[in-house]
């Protein structure tokens, strides 16, 4: 189950009822879409770009939504957009990908070196592995849900998850950085 409660809907102004309902539903999903986009992107600005593209696409494709689980549908659109972008960027290396190592919006651990290390390991993952890891570890989706969302067999979900976790662990170890207790 998704573990982060989505933000409350703040309704302002009046639009046609049906569209308004849809838009308000989307609006209530924006926080978790923002978290997902940021967890896929290499920087805050890339994350916001991806979020914008996703919201646009969701609205344009409104008629294609079958009326169930809007959240999963939007996450699928985001994942596909992310893969397409990534492919474009790698095919045209002249397009500069913002390589800055992003920090979180909220400084949780207070250890910038730790975050740099984490983001590096993440940026080394392929988009397919990264999206599966994020959908499971951060967005809280079940393995079958992820399989349905990405239209891949559950076995593929499991092997991508394994690979992502092992690659992350290996990459973190490769940095040859050991965290030690402070002596004070």
């Amino acid at each position: 189950m998704p573990h982060a409660p989505d933000q409350d809907i703040r309704v302002k102004g009046a639009s046609p009822p049906s569209a308004e309902t849809f838009e308000n539903q989307i609006l209530s999903l924006v926080p978790s879409l923002r978290r997902y986009s940021r967890s896929l992107a290499k920087s805050d600005s890339d994350g916001e770009d991806l979020l914008q593209d996703c919201v646009e696409k969701v609205l344009v494709r409104r008629s294609q939504w079958r009326g169930v689980n809007l959240r999963s549908w939007a996450f699928t659109i985001m994942t596909n957009l992310y893969r397409d972008r990534y492919r474009r960027v790698t095919q045209h290396p002249s397009v500069e990908f913002n390589d800055t190592l992003g920090l979180t919006a909220e400084d949780v651990s207070g250890d910038p070196l730790e975050k740099t290390r984490l983001h590096r390991a993440l940026n080394a993952l392929s988009p397919d592995h990264r999206s599966v890891l994020m959908l499971v570890a951060i967005e809280g989706y079940g393995y079958q849900d992820v399989a349905d969302m990405l239209a891949i067999p559950i076995g593929t979900v499991m092997s991508r998850l394994s690979r992502a976790r092992r690659q992350m662990a290996a990459h973190l170890a490769e940095n040859n950085i050991v965290t030690l207790r402070r002596p004070k």
Binding site: S32, S39, T104
Partner: peptide
């Protein structure tokens, strides 16, 4: 790893004044 990832990205699950604009422009 999972705990680290959650800690690193949970802060982004926030509303922003820009959200409504995201929708209206799109």
């Amino acid at each position: 790893q999972a705990a680290e990832l959650q800690a690193a990205f949970s802060g982004y699950a926030q509303s922003s004044e820009r959200d409504r604009m995201l929708l209206s422009t799109a």
